[in-house]
């Protein structure tokens, strides 16, 4: 262990006590294999036990340690201190979400939106287990695979100015997941998701800034999912205009 240190400017907010969040500086040892989350754990264990933040797996799978690092949404378990030398490193709660305390944001809004798009396989009629599984070819899997990599870390919402300005927007991850199930050959729920997708606060709210896809730690492209859903919705609409008796899929 070397004597080198690096400074973290961490946002603090105590509900009922602070009017608004403010930064607090902490000096932590600089270790070249440390990520921002390690530094936060060091602060909590050694310097100030009252610091609050969420984390779990520390390997980019659980999606709970998302924060703003120098203004960019990041999984703090994957943001190495060495990439931010000489510092200081600004660590803030995920942008666009209400802050509960320190670096902890309220998840309710996202969870509600996730439920609303019904991100599971919907069948017109379930077949009994005895008839076996719903089968799929590798090519059919390939059509939606990248959109199924989402870990619900909400970095895309923190990157989305539209969500920041109009929080009613269903948002990148929820739409990408809806799109993922719409693309799934085993799914028959397109019609059930459509009212949420084609609502004024659904896909049409997006202005294709595209930053959601840039910050996604899992290589999902929510921006493409949203634009393709617009194209599908618009095509649907056009068909229903020229063939009112049933051009819709």
């Amino acid at each position: 262990m070397s004597d080198a240190t690096i400074t973290l400017e961490v946002t603090r907010y105590r509900p009922g006590h602070d009017r608004e969040p403010h930064p607090q500086s902490f000096e932590v040892p600089f270790q070249k294999d440390w990520v921002v989350l390690d530094a936060l754990n060091h602060i909590k264990d050694r310097i100030d036990g009252t610091l609050s933040y969420r984390w779990s797996c520390r390997m980019g799978v659980c999606g709970s340690c998302g924060m703003m690092v120098n203004g960019v949404p990041k999984l703090t378990c994957a943001a190495f201190l060495r990439d931010y030398r000489p510092g200081p490193i600004r660590v803030e709660p995920l942008a666009n979400f209400p802050v509960i305390r320190d670096l902890v944001i309220a998840l309710d809004d996202f969870m509600e939106k996730l439920r609303r798009v019904k991100p599971w396989i919907i069948r017109a009629e379930e077949k009994p287990v005895s008839e076996g599984e719903y089968r799929q070819t590798p090519a059919q899997l390939e059509t939606y695979k990248q959109f199924s990599m989402c870990i619900n870390c909400m970095l895309c919402y923190a990157a989305c100015p539209v969500y920041g300005l109009a929080p009613a927007f269903v948002g990148p991850a929820a739409i990408a997941l809806a799109y993922r199930y719409n693309l799934d050959s085993r799914d028959e729920g397109y019609r059930l998701r459509e009212p949420v997708m084609s609502d004024a606060v659904g896909v049409w709210e997006c202005t294709f800034v595209g930053e959601c896809s840039v910050v996604c730690p899992k290589g999902v492209d929510p921006a493409a999912a949203i634009q393709r859903s617009k194209l599908a919705g618009a095509t649907d609409w056009l068909l229903s205009m020229v063939m009112p008796w049933g051009g819709r899929r």
Binding site: W204, K230, A234
Partner: peptide, 14 residues
């Protein structure tokens, strides 16, 4: 949640 009919697809196509 109630959904609204929207003219967005029309304008988006244009």
């Amino acid at each position: 949640m109630a959904t609204r009919k929207t003219s967005e697809p029309f304008w988006w196509l244009l």
